[in-house]
Deep mutational scan, measured.
Amino acid sequence: DAPDEFRDPLMDTLMTDPVRLPSGTIMDRSIILRHLLNSPTDPFNRQTLTESMLEPVPELKEQIQAWMR
């Protein structure tokens, strides 16, 4: 099983494109984008959230890719 820090906190699946929300939570980009289609909010604190506020986490993405090899 993947380490917890590699798993999306909402869907508990392996992240492939991790992004940091303004709240500091790291999620998979595809999952948070799907959530934003229904509700333009951070799913953990209900603060306003837009796609432009998502910050890529390239170092975590590299760690996940290395773990998958």
Rank of each mutant, 00 (worst) to 15 (best):
D1C: 15
D1E: 14
D4F: 15
E5S: 12
E5W: 13
F6E: 01
F6R: 02
F6K: 02
R7K: 13
R7P: 02
R7F: 13
R7C: 10
D8C: 10
D8W: 04
P9S: 07
P9K: 07
P9E: 04
L10C: 12
L10E: 04
M11R: 08
D12V: 06
T13S: 10
T13A: 06
L14D: 02
M15D: 00
M15W: 02
M15G: 03
T16P: 04
T16K: 12
T16R: 12
D17C: 09
V19P: 02
R20E: 03
R20H: 04
R20M: 09
R20F: 05
L21F: 04
L21M: 05
L21P: 01
S23I: 02
S23R: 02
G24A: 03
T25S: 09
T25Y: 15
I26S: 01
M27W: 04
M27F: 06
R29K: 13
S30Q: 14
S30A: 14
I31C: 09
I31L: 05
I32N: 00
I32C: 07
I32W: 03
L33A: 08
R34D: 10
R34F: 11
R34N: 13
H35E: 07
H35S: 05
L36Y: 03
L36E: 00
L36F: 06
L37V: 11
S39E: 11
S39H: 10
S39I: 07
P40N: 12
P40I: 07
P40R: 12
T41Q: 08
T41V: 09
T41W: 15
D42H: 03
D42G: 00
D42L: 02
P43G: 02
P43H: 02
P43Q: 02
F44Y: 07
F44E: 02
F44I: 06
F44V: 05
F44Q: 04
N45C: 08
R46N: 15
R46S: 15
T48M: 14
T48V: 13
L49E: 00
L49T: 05
L49M: 08
L49F: 04
E51G: 07
S52A: 14
S52V: 10
M53D: 12
M53A: 07
L54Q: 01
P56S: 11
P56E: 12
P56T: 08
V57A: 07
V57N: 05
V57H: 07
V57R: 03
P58N: 10
P58Y: 09
E59F: 10
E59L: 12
L60H: 03
L60M: 07
K61A: 10
Q63V: 10
Q63L: 15
Q63N: 07
I64D: 01
Q65Y: 12
A66C: 10
A66G: 08
A66D: 11
A66L: 13
A66N: 13
M68Y: 11
M68E: 08
M68N: 08
M68W: 11
M68I: 14
R69V: 12
